[in-house]
């Protein structure tokens, strides 16, 4: 089970990387930690001409906190977040999510940007960061090397394995807002065994000081169901005791809209969200 031939470059700047990504004559694939791409390469499911390893680019490995939040470079690893080497602005939310991703040896190389760009619906970051209201910072594009645009995380994943990157663009960083002291957070992931992919994810954030109430139902086999204003899930009256007003029927209607009809899938996804709500209420 060995990969087909590919070529490899490790640029030292985003500009050099973008140059390579603009090559239209080649199937170019970005390699961040490679913890998702590696297996696909080994199985020959992916056969690129060129891998562009972006882990040698210092500006992608920065963690820069400020008063409103933190900007994490695309090549910050799950272990960096788990261990707090990348400062936490979320009261422990990010490290807890990171710790639940795959296994430690994988987290030591797997990156936040790689995971988001891989756009796997079962991935923790796709759902978790959407619930936190994070944003993707994208470099390149029509304005060239200095071009920069920002997308909400829920818009960054456009479909299964499809990120909203145009040719000649790269995910530079993720912007995560700082949670206020009163913020309540619940996250519940349903897996059959530790480290296995999620069969359902529920996430809820209630941060009244910032007027934020968000909810996510993830691991749905397509883009996660992100509710930017989730007050209606709580009878329009969210409170610290979110569970008290939680409206399961409203959540079920979300699944209807998503077209999720399988009774088992509906049941576990509703369970994941309700349990996330319970966790948020218990804090």
């Amino acid at each position: 089970m060995k990969p087909a031939q590919f070529d490899y470059e490790r640029p030292s700047s985003v500009a050099e990387a973008l140059d390579l990504l603009r090559r239209e004559d080649l199937f170019v694939k970005v390699l961040a930690g490679g913890q998702s791409l590696g297996p696909m390469l080994n199985l020959r499911l992916v056969q690129p001409d060129l891998l562009v390893d972006i882990t040698g680019i210092p500006e992608l490995k920065r963690a820069e906190p400020d008063s409103d939040g933190i900007t994490l470079g695309a090549c910050i690893t799950n272990a960096d977040i788990e261990d707090g080497r990348a400062p936490d602005v979320t009261g422990g939310v990010l490290p807890a999510i990171a710790r639940g991703i795959a296994y430690r040896a994988v987290r030591n190389r797997g990156t936040i940007g790689g995971s988001l760009s891989h756009a796997d619906p079962s991935a923790d970051w796709v759902s978790g960061l959407a619930a936190l209201g994070a944003e993707a910072i994208i470099r390149g594009g029509p304005q060239g090397d200095s071009g920069r645009r920002t997308l909400p995380i829920e818009d960054y994943m456009v479909g299964v394995f499809e990120a909203a990157l145009e040719p000649g663009e790269i995910l530079e960083a993720v912007r995560i807002p700082r949670l206020s002291a009163r913020a309540r957070w619940g996250y519940y992931k349903i897996c059959r065994k530790t480290g296995e992919f999620a069969h359902a994810i529920g996430a809820v954030l209630y941060d009244p000081e910032r007027s934020v109430c968000r909810a996510v139902i993830g691991a749905t086999e397509s883009t996660p169901l992100v509710v930017a204003d989730a007050a209606f899930l709580f009878g329009d009256r969210p409170s610290d005791n979110l569970a008290a007003t939680y409206d399961t029927a409203a959540a079920a209607r979300l699944l209807d809209r998503k077209g999720m009809t399988d009774p088992f899938e509906r049941q576990v996804h509703l369970a994941a969200l309700r349990r996330a709500v319970d966790r948020a209420s218990l804090q």
Binding site: G33, D53, T55, K61, R62, G73, T77, R85, R109
Partner: peptide, 13 residues
């Protein structure tokens, strides 16, 4: 250092 283990010394290649 931050970033994937083993990438800290990465030189341009």
């Amino acid at each position: 250092s931050l970033g994937p283990v083993g990438s800290g010394h990465a030189r341009t290649m």
